[in-house]
Amino acid sequence: MKATEKSEQQGTRLSVFKTYKLYVGGKFPRSESGRVYEVTDSKSGAWLANAPLSSRKDARDAVVAARKAVAGWSGATAYNRGQVLYRVAEMLEGRREQFAREVAEAEGLSKARAAAVVDAAVDRWVWYAGWTDKITQVVGGANPVAGPFFNLSTPEPAGVVAVLAPQDSSFLGLVSVVAPVIATGNTAVVVASERAPLPALSLGEVLATSDVPGGVVNVLSGRTAEIALPLASHQDVNGIDLTGAAGELAVELETAAAENLKRVRRPSSEDWTADPGIGRLTAWLETKTVWHPIGV
């Protein structure tokens, strides 16, 4: 039973429902289409909220916002990005109960299991917060070329990454795919779990109060297939994470992504509780190699 229902039955007060909205360019718009869809409790099937049913236009608007944010975010110091990601963890920590409730309803978990999932998600932000100023040394470095040249390879963000968040893990999975994208200086257009989008939409509220510049993360809810195709074929998107797509849809999206040679991360079986490694960081990094002669 939802806490709100309980208090209503006790006759104490009528609860205030939240209007769940998209998070685009640091603002909370409704879908430009004016459409919503019903989101229900994964166990009881009870109505939880109406979520925005994003349109292709919403997807394009989100890409514009994400592109606008690239210069500032990728140009921020790695230390600064680390602090901002850590700030997200701080903000989430104070909202653990809210997210535990939303995750429990979204995924049909017990209160205790949902709380553990949220804790793991908070810790995942901390993990990636620490990576922002380390990944460059781990994957870059000096190259000992056979000649009098300074030669250095450094990783750089690919740019705008479309992220199809996992369908099953509405929060820990979501955080696990979004945090590495922005840790490395990319900006993200995130398509939330279609059936369970509420934790993702609420995450937007956390990001908005965590010093994450507007447009760095943009969250869309709706039909994954409907929003993902315009993102996969968008000429100003540099990469796409297909984690939340399956089967035929994933093939269709990878094919569309070939049109401007997006970097593609294909769906695979994931254990969101396992050590994340650095694969999701390097997926969205380019290597730039700079040469300069050495001489007097």
Partner: peptide
Amino acid sequence: GVVWANTFNKFDPTSPFGGYKE
């Protein structure tokens, strides 16, 4: 992916080569 400063078209087996975007 490769930036040559005050030089151009230098290659070496130890130096990663490849592009951004298309």
